[in-house]
Simulated assay, not measured.
Amino acid sequence: MSKLVHITSPDEFSKLLSSTMYVVTDFYADWCGPCKQIAPLYEQMASTFSIPNYLAFAKVNVDHVQPVAQQYRITAMPTFMFFKSGKQVAVNGSAAILGGDVRSLQGAAEKLGRLAKEKRDAGV
């Protein structure tokens, strides 16, 4: 079962950001080759690291949910962004990962997974 949250509207994205401490977001397009290449790895990260209310992995199709893509000025696909308490943040020094940089994405997912687990275990 996929733990990915497929965003279909700006309101849905807003609700996810407000209800989940950390959110990793994949801005992608169906026609994007690198997006298709990294998708199975992203899904695996979601299965490994997702913790309800603490860490979610979202996918935003830039062609179907254009207002969200425009809000975050997405110009390259895939673009991965990170959010904490509803605000965009940098992880490991990167505010966003452009393209299929597997090593950077894996490092960010592992770090957020660790932070989310610590927060959950501390009851924060």
Rank of each mutant, 00 (worst) to 15 (best):
E12Y: 01
P67Q: 11
H64I: 02
S104H: 12
K84L: 02
N92Y: 00
Y54W: 09
V5E: 10
T8N: 11
Y22L: 01
T48V: 09
D63R: 05
P52I: 02
T25G: 10
F82A: 10
S14E: 10
N53K: 15
K111I: 02
C35V: 06
I97H: 10
N92S: 10
H6F: 05
V124D: 09
G123I: 07
L98M: 14
V102I: 15
A39D: 13
I38F: 04
S104G: 13
K87A: 13
A56D: 12
V91Q: 01
D30G: 12
A90P: 03
H64Q: 15
G99R: 08
C32W: 13
M81H: 06
Y54E: 12
A69F: 10
G113F: 06
S94Y: 07
P34S: 13
P52C: 08
V68C: 11
D11W: 03
F80Y: 05
A96E: 10
K3Y: 06
I74K: 04
F49K: 04
A95C: 04
G100P: 09
Y42V: 14
L112D: 01
C32E: 12
S18F: 01
V5L: 03
D101I: 10
M1G: 13
M77T: 14
A29F: 06
V5Q: 05
K59Y: 04
H6T: 08
D11C: 01
A46T: 05
A69P: 11
A39I: 00
M1R: 09
T25M: 06
V102E: 15
A116N: 08
A46E: 09
A122D: 08
D11E: 14
